[in-house]
Design a protein around this nucleic acid. Structure first.
Length: 431
RNA sequence: GUGGUUGUAGCUCAAUGGCAGAGUCCUGGAUUGUGGUUCCAGUUGUUGUGGGUUCGAGCCCCAUCAGCCACCCCA
């Protein structure tokens, strides 16, 4: 054998046994999103690096050290574009919204994407991969707090329909471009004299991402966090009013949310409402999102309010498994056709019959490779086929086949009446 | 990116520094034409990879790759 190859670190294959989970999430999320008036969009995996650098933000880990960025092939003048395999979904959707003039449509434009691969060069562990997949929604062109509440309601409905319980909904408002800088100034003024006694991470956060100071888990820093100025007390009137409205509408959707004044999000583009759903046991975020009223402008468009989220599909699957939620099974094999003797005529007849059944929409399997009859029937059994059809010398000579329904007597059915027989049986079954 | 831990058959796992094994799966048979159960037989490995110590390494040492855990961060 040649030198063995394996998938890259943090990359994995999604094997057939896992697929029912993926289809379950995809189908559920898609149908709920459509129920809320969202329509599907797909954008390229590759974007100009600037699309992410300008929106997600310099100084964030995603941009600073996790992006798969490289120079594209040079053109004839030797110029090349720096491009990035997307680390998140929002920037590309907003880029597409602007590029296609969707701001001329009735607003808001409500979009979703599903099974969308995202790439971040992180150190992997369970529920955290270098390639992961998101289901996500974006609503563009509307600042009404109803849209915020409706999006969180949509997300909550997805988890409910998936059968998940005890999901925690955390929300917060982190202000806008007017009041947040004021707040950060205040926060830094508060932390400055305390900095020498802070953990090393917090010393970095102070300069790089001050809001993250509130997120520190070191015991020594907890009292500092408790006494720190709260962003909720420092929202301007408009942001305050918006947040109050979001909470009021959320109640109408019956979402059991918790206001978490320490919830901040790592991406620079968020404004006002931010939210994150977590499971009961650990702190793992199942999704994350928020409003980003300044994002379109950063990408060169008109000022455009927007809000969106990304939901981690791998993490949702982990939670489904943790809560023992079993996804709908794949359709079972209905018919297995076995042939008795290893003669060309019998095998030909089998292949013909299998083709007919499949063309008629009946999920059919057969034994390959001239295995023994016993082996074929074993396979019929392991495929859970409802019917076994047996073709032998007698059947071939007299133009019939033997059909045996699992656990019942065999029946002899004329060669031309097999499909009618199977459909008839199914029909009776449903009465 | 930091620290820790694990790596043996397709899968789940054994093996005091001394012949690398079991269960399961797969294939065939017991049963020469009917899906279960049982029984019998067979296939499966450069012990993640590369070095080192040793008479001798799956086991000890170093490196490397990968998984997992705690951080960082995030979905």
């Amino acid at each position: 054998m040649a030198e063995s190859v394996h998938a890259l670190q943090g990359f994995r294959d999604i094997l057939p046994d896992e697929q029912p989970y993926w289809r379950f999430i995809e189908d559920t999320a898609t149908s709920v999103a459509q129920l809320y008036g969202y329509r599907c969009i797909e954008t390229p995996l590759l974007e100009e690096t600037a699309v992410f650098r300008k929106t997600v933000g310099e100084g964030t880990d995603i941009v600073d050290r996790e992006m798969y960025a490289f120079d594209d092939k040079a053109d004839k003048d030797g110029n090349s574009l720096n491009i990035t395999i997307r680390p998140e979904g929002t920037a590309g959707v907003v880029r597409a919204y602007l590029e296609h003039g969707m701001f001329r449509l009735q607003l808001p434009v409500k979009l979703y994407y599903t099974n969308a691969p995202m790439f971040r060069h992180e150190k992997p562990q369970a529920g955290r991969y270098r390639e992961h997949h998101q289901f996500g929604c974006e609503a563009l062109g509307e600042s009404d707090a109803v849209v915020d509440a409706e999006m969180i309601g949509l997300l909550h409905q997805i988890y409910t329909q998936l059968g998940l319980t005890h999901i925690r909904v955390n929300i917060n408002s982190i202000g806008d471009t007017i009041c947040r800088p004021e707040y950060i100034k205040k926060l830094k003024a508060y932390y400055e004299p305390l900095l020498t006694s802070c953990c090393d991470d917090c010393k970095v956060r102070f300069h790089k991402n001050p809001l993250r100071l509130l997120d520190c888990k070191e015991p020594q820093d907890q009292p500092k966090i408790a006494n720190a100025p709260k962003i909720a007390d420092n929202l301007d009137a408009a942001c305050q009013e918006h947040f109050e409205a979001v909470k009021r509408y959320l109640d109408f959707y019956g979402v059991p949310y918790t206001v978490n004044p320490l919830l901040v999000r790592g991406l620079d583009y968020y404004t006002r409402t931010v939210f994150e759903f977590t499971n009961e046991n650990n702190k793992t975020a199942l999704n994350g999102g928020g409003r980003y009223d300044g994002l379109a402008e950063i990408l060169g468009g008109e000022q455009t309010p927007g809000i969106g989220f990304g939901m981690g599909m791998e993490r949702t699957i982990l939670e489904l498994k943790r809560q023992n939620v079993v996804p709908p099974a794949e359709p079972a094999t209905q018919v297995f056709v076995a042939y008795l003797a290893k003669t060309p005529e019998l095998k030909d007849t089998t292949v013909q019959l299998v083709a007919e059944l499949r063309h008629a929409g009946i999920k059919t399997e057969m034994g390959y490779g001239d295995r023994s009859f016993k082996a074929q029937m074993k396979r019929a059994n392991s495929s859970n086929a409802e019917y076994a059809i047996i073709i032998g010398e007698n059947e071939l000579a007299n133009g019939f086949v033997t059909i045996r329904r699992s656990g019942t007597e065999s029946a002899e059915v004329k060669r031309g009446e097999v499909i009618a027989y199977l459909n008839g049986e199914e029909g009776e079954d449903q009465k």
